[in-house]
Amino acid sequence: MSAALLGRVPGPVMVAAGCGGTGRELLPYAGPAGLDGLDLVTRSITLDARSGGPGPRVVEVPGGLVNAVGLPNPGLEHFLATELPWLVRAGARVFVSVAGATMGEYADLARRLSRAPGVAGLEVNVGAPDEAGAGLFEVREPYHAASVIAAVRREFPADRPVLAKLRPDVSRIVEGARACHEAGATAVVVGNAVPAAFRDGRPGGLSGPAIASVALRCVVEVHRALPDVPTIGCGGVHDVASARAFLDAGARGVQVGTALLHDPTTVTRLRAALLPVDPPTPEETP
């Protein structure tokens, strides 16, 4: 599929899914421009409301956090009626993260979001660290991920981006990225939290600086094998140097997640440092 047909790759700095609250909570830390122009991935939205898992949902480990939050969200209906219009009004470029238990749920979500005003694109959560525990469609093989992407693509306009968020598993990432891109993903987000466990053995996902080098390795491998597949690095980005490492490895952008929990101004600072300042382009005047 031609890249032009798949929509623009967002970035270079995005808010990662699940680390921006409802979006409103970022506003106090966003500086004078507010959320205007901010590429924001929402927390994962499911068809029905979810209250999330029991506590403790997030615990600290050296260099990061282990979480099993359980995708708390108000469900698609309520999201469309309240949170989305607020974000659109605030000027954010909203990428809705979608999560479903079946292929049909993903298709449903994509169809209804394709009609909602202001949705810039979708991110498909096809690499959650504990899908079984979260009650999500299980992605064990790359073709599972690809079939979800294809189902979403069928329902979502071709000129708007669909991002595939994959598990940063170096042994499968290249295959996964290839399959998702062929299925219509505009870019591949590499990656999600790394499967991990709490002290009592409960499954969770590890995020934060501890996984930066793991995600970076995955970006390197994808870029080497599939230089034409756009990637967005996600994992442990917290400052300009950690973001640049991903960009230098070939990523088109980065997502900032756990760092926002540590310092809610992180995205604002990274955008200021990494967003290209509009160069004077007289030949391109509209």
């Binding site: 909570e25 209250s51 809610p264």
Partner: peptide
């Protein structure tokens, strides 16, 4: 008082 990983409402970690 619930354990609050971020305190700012971003992480949904303090049910």
């Amino acid at each position: 008082e619930c354990p609050t990983p971020c305190g700012t409402g971003l992480c949904h970690g303090c049910p």
